[in-house]
Simulated scan of single mutants.
Amino acid sequence: MKKLLNISLALLVLSIILAGCGSSGSSDETVKVGLNGSGVPVWEKMKELAAEEGIEIELVEFADYVRPNLALADGDIDLNAFQTVSYFDSFIEEHDLDLAPIASTYIAPMGIYSDKYESVDEIPEGRKVALPKEATNMGRALLLLEKAGLITLPEDFDGNGAIDKIVENPKGLKFEPIVAAQTPRVLPDVAISVINNGVAIEAGFLPVEDAIFIEDDTATPYINIIAARADETDHETYQKIAEIYQQEVVADHIREVYNNSLIPTFVPLEDIGW
């Protein structure tokens, strides 16, 4: 009897020790975050900070702006962080996806680039202009071209791009919509190319120095977000990741790594229409 009691006590002590070891270690939960190449430096920092909180982040890179949302909806990844809320809203409506943002991150100003001209005023008549063909990206590009004084759009322009929405084109510019990722590569063949910030950085540009015209406070509607499936926006770990992201240490890292070409923008979701 005494021997059995001793064995029971030994087993009890062992179970307590094992339980203690399990609770003191890091979480076994791995969160897969989808992003494109330009977001990797930020999320490498996020991996370090999250690990300190017992959260393992696995980065899943995509080469386009379509698959990250589809992968999120399909459950192949848990979060994504690569897009503006404007693009996100349009995409989930078009594809009928049940996704939602959980946090704002930064503004990545879009710019006009040229390897032939140093100012938009120098552009001759009838020249070619490359711009991203995705509806929200094109809309953003058209607004930038309007701000640069090259075209005029209707007063009720809704931000979704289409060449036929241009009201005035005094220089008779010829517009060539192409996939956003290709906009830097066509620079030798066009007068100017309107390039997304992340794409420009991947191509080796420093937007604040190399763009001949760049967004300023008009970029406010184009705040980037972290997105999740709509039924998991309150997931404790995902909320913790959002909290970690919106720290000054991450903001400083963004400014340093991207040479102030990205603007950390941590605002409530209500401010971006959610």
Rank of each mutant, 00 (worst) to 15 (best):
T30S: 10
V190W: 01
E134M: 12
K171Q: 02
E155I: 11
P264T: 10
K3E: 13
G37E: 06
D210W: 07
A108D: 02
G111A: 07
V249T: 11
E122G: 04
A211N: 09
E94P: 03
P132W: 09
L5G: 02
I163A: 06
A230I: 08
L35E: 06
T218Y: 13
T30K: 15
L49W: 04
Q247H: 08
K128S: 08
Y117M: 06
V208A: 12
E56T: 13
S86H: 13
E56G: 11
A135E: 14
A219D: 07
G111E: 05
W43N: 03
L142E: 02
E61K: 09
G161Q: 02
K116P: 01
D96Y: 12
Y222M: 07
V250C: 01
A203S: 12
S8V: 13
T30N: 09
E94A: 14
L14A: 11
P207I: 09
D28C: 11
W43I: 07
S86P: 08
I225P: 00
L59E: 00
D96K: 15
A100K: 10
T136P: 03
L18I: 14
P207W: 02
K128N: 08
I163V: 10
Y106H: 13
A108V: 02
F266N: 07
A130R: 08
K47Q: 14
I272M: 03
E94R: 10
L5C: 08
V60M: 06
V40C: 06
L14F: 10
D78G: 05
G39E: 03
M1V: 13
I244R: 00
I226T: 03
N197G: 09
G39S: 08
V40M: 06
F205W: 09
S114I: 03
A242H: 05
S86C: 12
G39V: 06
F62C: 09
T30H: 10
V167F: 04
A81S: 11
V85S: 04
A19Y: 13
H95L: 09
K147C: 04
V120S: 01
S15T: 11
S86D: 13
E48N: 05
I201K: 05
P170T: 07
D64Y: 04
V13P: 01
